[in-house]
Amino acid sequence: MAVSPHILPPAQSVTRVMALVLLGLVPATLVYAWLFGPAILINVAWAALACVGLEAIMLRLRGYPVRPYLGDLSAVLTGWLLALSMPALSPWWLTLTGCMLAIVVAKHLYGGLGQNVFNPAMVGYAGLLISFPALMTQWPAPLALAHAQLGAADSAQYIFAGHLPAGLKLDAITSATPLDTLRTQLKQDRTLSEILRQPLFGHLGGKGFELIAAAYLLGGALLLARKVITWHVPLAYLAAVGLTAGVFHLYDVDHYAGPWFHLAAPSTMLAAFFIATDPVTGATTPRGKLIFAAGAGFLTVLIRILGGYPDGVAFSILLMNICVPLIDAHTQPKVFGHGGDDA
């Protein structure tokens, strides 16, 4: 016998939530392909396909109905996010390994949709970064700076078969990310202004990279407008990144990049609007979201500046994921009639 409520609004489902998030990723993905070549599109498609396939296998193994759970699009989203976090010219097996870490280990070993403690895409990324550090730092160079360009067919050939068109060296088309470049060159005792004058850097962050960041911002605005996410996480995350970077910058202007540089990194915007906002692995109370995101932002910059990895997003998110139960338990809003006042 049916129990109340007997009605639900028609257009509302997990699928719709996920689809809107995917829609939010479209602008950045297109900008990415436009500035860095079509390889990213191939990689996104491959990662999404791999995740869906792995999800189907895991659902079958765990005795869940495959169709409705594949239809929720969460696997597609995980794959897409992972692909956007990885270098676009990653070989197929690297991406597949990341997808396995994400879907099999981070998601299904923890109980599947809604049960996972760690953000699957970030588990995949972090696992790859630890295991294959060299491959994970080979980013495609912005087309404007590259000495050669790879078309769609050539990219596919490189990703799946591992060889480049005759006469082309990998160095010619890849470089380290601006964040990475900055980090390694600072270690070589060069000053900030010196480094930032190099052609890889643009107005705020990396040339081209900053446009991707802007596109993420645009996608994030869409999510905010459609109420898929609330303002808490992006605001707190970006504020924490800016503030932490700002403090370091003021401490030593010649050594630490300013807030804008960190904010204009694509990974910052991706994290603020698409990663830290993952409902399953993030805090759920309003104050909890602020703490969670601020913590992640702070750690992101800290790891970037002091750590040994090219970026700190994945680790900061995973570290904060552990704290979520604690944060949620201590940030319960005042319930009606208990003397609260946030009407």
């Binding site: 639900l8 489902s13 997990v14 939530v17 409705p68 759970y69 929720d72 599947g112 949709l113 809604g114 049960q115 609330t230 409902p279 399953v280 993030g282 759920t284 109370t285 949620d328 319960q332 809003p333 005042k334 319930v335 009606f336 009639g337 609260g340 946030d342």
Partner: peptide, 21 residues
Amino acid sequence: PRTMPCIRCGACARACPARLQ
């Protein structure tokens, strides 16, 4: 429609007039 696992999206908490979780 069929039920899915809770994804902790918090939509329920935003809708709750008693400010529960």
